[in-house]
Design a protein around this nucleic acid. Structure first.
Lengths: 147, 147
DNA sequence: TATTGTTATACTCTATAACTATA
DNA sequence: TATAGTTATAGAGTATAACAATA
C-alpha cells in the first residue's frame, strides 16, 4: 500500500511544512480582526453565496452540529444571519450581514496580502507552475475518499 | 498597504485552497490513529529530538500553557514523557515513548503516503519546482513578524 | 530580574447521539 | 423513510493572567 519513494516524500514534506506555515499565517491574520481561523474561513466561504447548514458543513469539513454552535456565535455578533430557505421549510440559508461581509473581505484581503509578500520573490514562470500544480492537488481525490 | 495585483492573488488563493485541502487530509489521517491533528503534529515534531516546553510551543505556534495540557493528555496515554533537563532544573524535556515513536512514524508515513497519491500525476520537473518554491515560502518571513 | 513551566479560568472547536420538523 | 437542522453532552484546543521554582 505504501509505494512511496524517497524522492516523493520530499515533496510531501515540503507541502506539509508549507501547510503549517500558512495555517500560522492564517491564524495571525484572523486574530487582530477578532476572528478565529475557523470563523474567518466560514465568513470567507459565504462571500460567494449564502449556503445551507449541510452544504456549509461539507465545505468546512465539520459536522452539522459543530457548525450550529459556530453559526450561533457569529449570529450573536451579527456577522451572519439565518434566513428561511425558499421551498424547503426545514432548511435555512446562512448569509453574511453587511458587517460580516466587510469583515470577510478584510480577512480575505489581509491573508492574500500576506501570502503575496511571502511569494513575492518567485518568478512569473514559477508562479504559473505553482498555481496549476496546487489546483491539481486541491481537486485531486484519494482512493478511499468516496465515503 | 494592499499592493496586490490580480495576478498575485491567484497564487495566494491557490495556496489557501491547497492549505485547507491538506488540513482536511491531515485530520482524516490522524483520526483513525486516535489522534487529533494537533497531537499528530506534536508527536511528529518530537521524532527529530526531545524538546523543552518553550521550544516546542514555539515550533507549534501555541502558548506554553496550552501546550501543558496537550502534553498532560499525551503523557497520560504514555505517548510522551517528561524528563528532567540537564543543567537547568526548571526545564524539562518532552520525549516520545516507544509507543509514541511508533505512532509518530505511522502518522508521518500515512500523511506522506496520502499526499504522494495526491501528487502522483505531477511531472518530475514540476515536483522539483514545487519543492523549491514551497521551501522558499515556508522559510520566508513577513515584515512585522520579528516580535 | 528573567526564564521555565504550571495552574486557574474562560471560550471556542469538534464529534456523537438523540431529537424535532419537514420532505 | 430520509433529510435539514438543533440540542445535549463531553472532550480537546487555545489564550490570558497569575503563580512557583530556578537561573
Amino acid at each position: 500500500m505504501a509505494t512511496t519513494t524517497a524522492r516523493d516524500s520530499e515533496l510531501a514534506e515540503a507541502l506539509v511544512q508549507a501547510m503549517h506555515r500558512l495555517q500560522d499565517l492564517h491564524a495571525e491574520t484572523s486574530r487582530p480582526l477578532g476572528l478565529t481561523p475557523q470563523q474567518a474561513h466560514l465568513l470567507c466561504v459565504l462571500i460567494a453565496a449564502p449556503l445551507g447548514m449541510t452544504e456549509l458543513s461539507r465545505i468546512l469539513s465539520i459536522e452539522r452540529s459543530s457548525l450550529t454552535s459556530m453559526v450561533d456565535r457569529l449570529e450573536r455578533r451579527e456577522l451572519v444571519a439565518r434566513t428561511a430557505a425558499p421551498r424547503d421549510r426545514r432548511a435555512c440559508l446562512i448569509e453574511l450581514t453587511p458587517d460580516g461581509l466587510t469583515l470577510a473581505h478584510q480577512c480575505h484581503d489581509a491573508v492574500v496580502d500576506r501570502i503575496d509578500t511571502l511569494t513575492a520573490d518567485l518568478s512569473q514562470t514559477t508562479r504559473r507552475t505553482l498555481v496549476t500544480a496546487l489546483r491539481a492537488i486541491t481537486t485531486a481525490t484519494v482512493s478511499n475518499e468516496a465515503d
